[in-house]
Write a protein that binds this DNA or RNA. Structure first.
Length: 909
RNA sequence: GCCUUGGUGGUGAAAUGGUAGACACGAGGGACUUAAAAUCCCUUGGACAGAAAUGUCCGUGCGGGUUCGAUUCCCGCCCGAGGCACCA
């Protein structure tokens, strides 16, 4: 009986589905383990071989953990709201729900063919009202909470109201509150709510007709669609993510994520410790204190001017009547630029003098105030003190506008560039003179605080997330407007279902504004919808308790599953989803809805699988194609050819002729009787004919081969091109594995005792597999498997004692063939319920081993010693050779270095 | 510019201070077969010497350093990938 993967895989996939083999229960007798994949967006193109890379790795780990006695939660779902479905709806008029449902069905079919151990009873879809009910619920919780900086956590907004009524809060006094109208009260609270509405400069994308979050914009273009993005002041719903900046930064330390990813988040959060300090300014005889932020107060004696951001309200306030026209013209100029232009022009220095002067609070110097776009309104206070001698941006500005440059560090040369380094001795700096820069940085901060001129301040670059989108295919906001006041739709009324609309075409207004009766109790409902990251921010919690109608997750389910132990997905979510999820989770943690303050303990980023395109070379002006090796002799054009008609870079000529009508009469110039195609690594895409569908691999080789091959390709974290060159190797391995059990129709397995050598092979493998899986080095595990199977084949091993554990060991990697052989070994239950075999070192230990002996690193001869010999014993033996051995005897031994079981080196004079 | 990564045969890669290239692909040779497929065996980093067994030298992007010994650790450069980019 040959290894017939087709029938085997079909049989076991049906068995797993029918028996709910991988259904997870809350079982407190076992330790839990939660393995999660980043759920896919179900696009129309279907799954390609890149998607399953991470899914296979997580599935292997899940199955391994089950064998190790853990109760494993391994769910899957779909991130189903979002722009592509809506764009498609605009083009075709089809309801996004219809295309989404179709795409989901296709994804499911493709996923099932690969044999994943998902508990499909826990599937979630973000566009399902029963799911987005909880997205809306979380939003309402954020709406009715504020961030208490003293307790450093979110609290119900009622507590803030109580506090204002009693003692006042910040600049709101109890009297003000008492006399405030409903509308004014609403406006005051909006300044504190975690989910709030506020005017801000937003990324407006005309092409998509919506605003976008910072992580949805790259190089001034929208990530989806690549349309230009401009800055616009608009009133939008926002999430106060910035309040959590410090906590998001600090708890990174305890996460088991890669350093590069943590670093990306640290940069994105962008903490900087500095000082806020007040400069008095005067303008047309009026004075006004202006607070600036700096990380280098120590350079305050080198300040020669100040700069205000053009978007800042201060810009016009500090403009003198004589400079009014110039400043207004400059601000208009700046506003006109798109984000992309501003990025492109970062090297050009622009600015205008405001007409105002500031007073240096330490020196009393009178310095000019300028306005320039290199200062950002959204960071710090939107105003800076400029120290051209020690800041490269200030330096460029001072050079351009001929402002003085005063160095304050001894011996530095600022004739061609600024001296930014934090080293040297201070000079020209009053009481700081003679101090080391590092010392001066602290001394200056202390001084400013003591004199009451300013205070230490930590700033973050992380901005609040803009949460509304003027689109259709997203979660509606459970907010209605009563006399212009935003009011929450009561929780009991959730989900607030997405209404039907006649047409998806953008008309400049939000699509929901066209929906009939989009009202609550006669009041108009919010017409924006939530962004893509809303639904993906807490989905991992929903998997714990997916059918609960009363809560996002019950206290019991949450207390048992806690958080995700292993999360696998791409790095592209580093500054989006992975920040928002952490924020969302911390918020729910603050209110006591979840018991862990971080959602994902360990995170692995799988690399991208790129496409490997093939080319044929058409001789210009003919229908003749020349093989790649000979193309230099002709003038040719390169044409992408469908990789499905190329094998190992050799073109299937007949298939090529049949591929396109225009190639039916094609002629070929061959090398060695074959047509060799050129190749290149490119993004996997339809237009380059390099997309590999996993179904095709499953058809030709089987799912087990696909799984093994994707893992054998190299380390999971690494990006690499898809290349089926080596796939025959793992396929051969599976056939060999099968032949350990079957010689044609003869079942070979016996109950004989295993030999010492066979046991050694097995136990070496057990140890290696355990170590490698824990370290996520699946490619080396598979290598170890190949070695073991080759050894056992050579030994003609056929004992149950060896083969039974071997099947268990293979099952995480190639579950179908393992199930089949497991049942043929006479087991009634799935191999998933077996236990991982125990490693016993006694089988592996060798009696003797050979030490290569080298002198000063050069190998001379070898000695045989028992493996159990200690380094001291080996050394004593070698020194004993001094009398008899011609090498050792002729030299003076200085030192003998022994590494157990490996190598011995003798240092001689 | 800054941060994070990575650079090893024809190819994917292994080895994280101790015999570099495990394992696999591809290639070449052989066995079985009428033939093909499948399967199995041998060779396969480079150079040199030898009839052969075998031996010697070189070799992990480049240049230094630490060490008895470096792909691995340190310093400086070159190249590729990813991220951030007027954040004061």
């Amino acid at each position: 009986m040959e290894y017939d993967f087709r029938s085997i895989e079909k049989k076991w996939q049906e068995y797993w589905a029918a028996n709910r083999t991988f259904k997870a229960f809350e079982d407190s007798s076992k330790p839990k383990y939660y393995v999660l994949d980043m759920f896919p967006y179900p696009s129309g193109a279907g799954l390609h071989v890149g998607h399953p890379l991470g899914y296979i790795a997580s599935d292997i780990f899940s199955r391994y953990k089950r064998l190790k006695g853990f109760n494993v939660l391994h769910p899957m779902g779909y991130d189903a709201f979002g722009l592509p479905a809506e764009q498609y709806a605009i083009q075709t008029g089809q309801h996004p729900e219809k295309t989404t449902t179709e795409n989901v069905a296709r994804y499911r079919q493709q996923l099932d063919r690969i044999g994943f151990s998902y508990d499909w009873d826990r599937e979630v879809r973000t566009c399902d009202p029963e799911f987005y009910k909880w997205t809306q619920w979380a939003f309402l919780k954020m709406f009715s909470s504020w961030y208490d900086p003293e307790q450093e956590k979110a609290r119900p907004i009622e507590e803030l109201v109580a506090r204002i009524e009693k003692t006042g809060y910040e600049d709101v006094t109890p009297e003000m509150w008492k006399s405030a109208s409903e509308k004014e009260k609403s406006e005051i609270l909006m300044r504190y709510r975690i989910a709030y509405q506020g005017e801000t400069s937003v990324n407006w994308c005309e092409g998509l007709g919506t605003v976008l979050a910072n992580d949805e914009v790259k190089d001034g273009l929208s990530v989806r669609g690549g349309f230009p993005v401009e800055q616009k002041k608009m009133t939008q719903w926002q999430l106060r993510v910035s309040a959590y900046a410090g906590r998001l930064l600090n708890s990174l330390d305890k996460l088991d994520w890669t350093d590069s990813l943590k670093e990306m988040q640290r940069n994105w959060i962008g903490k900087s410790d500095g000082t806020e300090i007040v400069f008095n300014t005067e303008c047309d005889g009026r004075t006004k204190p202006v607070t600036i932020f700096t990380t280098r107060v120590d350079t305050i004696f080198g300040v020669t001017f100040m700069v205000i951001a053009p978007e800042s309200d201060l810009a016009l306030e500090l403009t003198s009547s004589s400079q009014k026209d110039a400043v207004e013209a400059y601000i208009r100029e700046v506003k006109k630029k798109t984000e992309r232009e501003r990025i492109a022009e970062t090297k050009t220095v622009t600015g205008v003098f405001s007409g105002a002067y500031g007073i240096n609070p330490l020196t009393g110097d009178r310095i000019p105030v300028w306005i320039s776009e290199y200062v950002l309104a959204g960071y710090g206070t939107g105003a800076i003190m400029a120290v051209p001698a020690h800041d490269s941006r200030d330096y460029a500005f001072a050079r351009k506008f001929n402002l003085p440059i005063v160095p304050i560090i001894e011996g530095c040369d600022v004739s061609t560039q600024s001296f930014d380094a934090k080293e040297g001795k201070m000079c020209n700096s009053g009481f700081l003179n003679g101090m080391d820069v590092k010392e001066a940085m602290e001394a200056a901060k202390d001084y400013v605080e003591e004199k009451g001129l300013g205070r230490r301040k930590t700033n973050y670059r992380l901005r609040d997330a803009i949460f509304s989108r003027q689109r259709y295919w997203g979660e509606p906001f459970p907010i209605y407007y009563k006399d212009g006041i935003a009011c929450p739709v009561p929780e009991e009324e959730l989900p607030l279902r997405l209404p039907e609309i006649d047409s998806y075409k953008p008309t400049g207004e939000a699509p929901l504004a066209r929906a009939k009766d989009w009202t609550y109790k006669g009041y108009p409902l919010e017409t924006s919808t939530m962004p893509g990251f809303a639904g993906s921010s807490a989905y991992y919690l929903r998997y714990m308790d997916p059918h609960n109608g009363e809560a996002l997750v019950s206290g019991e389910a949450d207390a048992y599953w806690r958080n995700v132990d292993l999360y696998i997905g791409g790095t592209e979510h580093a500054t989006g989803h992975l920040i928002y999820s952490r924020f969302w989770n911390k918020f729910l943690f603050d209110l006591g809805y979840v018991c862990e303050d971080e959602p994902f303990r360990k995170l692995i980023n799988q690399g991208m699988i790129q496409g490997r395109s093939n080319f044929v070379y058409r001789v210009v002006g003919t229908n003749t194609f020349v093989s790649a090796g000979l193309r230099k002799q002709y003038e040719t054009t390169e044409i992408h050819v469908d990789i499905n008609i190329v094998h190992n870079d050799r073109l299937d000529l007949e298939a090529f002729k049949a591929w396109r009508p225009e190639f039916a009469e094609a002629e070929f110039i061959l090398e060695n009787g074959e047509y060799v195609c050129g190749w290149a690594v490119e993004k996997m895409s339809k237009s380059m004919y390099n997309v590999v569908n996993p179904d095709v691999v499953c058809d030709t080789y089987g799912a087990d081969t696909l799984r093994l091959y994707e893992m054998f390709l190299g380390p999971i974290e690494q990006s690499k091109p898809w290349d089926t060159k080596g796939i025959d190797g793992v396929n051969r391995f599976l056939k060999k594995f099968w032949r350990l059990f079957y010689d044609r129709d003869r079942f070979l397995v016996t109950d004989e005792k295993a030999s010492a050598e066979e046991l050694k092979s097995l136990h070496k493998l057990i140890r290696k597999e355990q170590e490698d899986i824990e370290a996520f080095s699946f490619n080396t595990t598979i290598s170890a498997f190949m070695i073991a199977v080759n050894e056992l084949t050579a030994l003609k091993c056929c004992t149950r004692e060896i083969l039974e554990p071997l099947v268990i060991l293979l099952s995480p990697f190639a579950p179908h063939i393992s199930e089949e052989l497991w049942s043929r070994l006479g087991h009634q239950e799935s191999v998933a319920f077996a236990s991982f075999p125990e490693f016993e070192s006694s089988y592996v230990a060798e009696d003797n081993c050979t030490y290569p002996v080298s002198f000063n690193g050069r190998t001379r001869f070898s000695i045989d010693m028992p493996k159990s010999a200690t380094p001291a014993e080996v050394e004593a033996y070698v020194r004993g050779l001094e009398q008899t051995d011609r090498y050792v005897g002729s030299q003076t031994i200085v030192k003998v270095i022994v590494v157990p079981g490996r190598i011995i080196n003798i240092v001689v004079k």
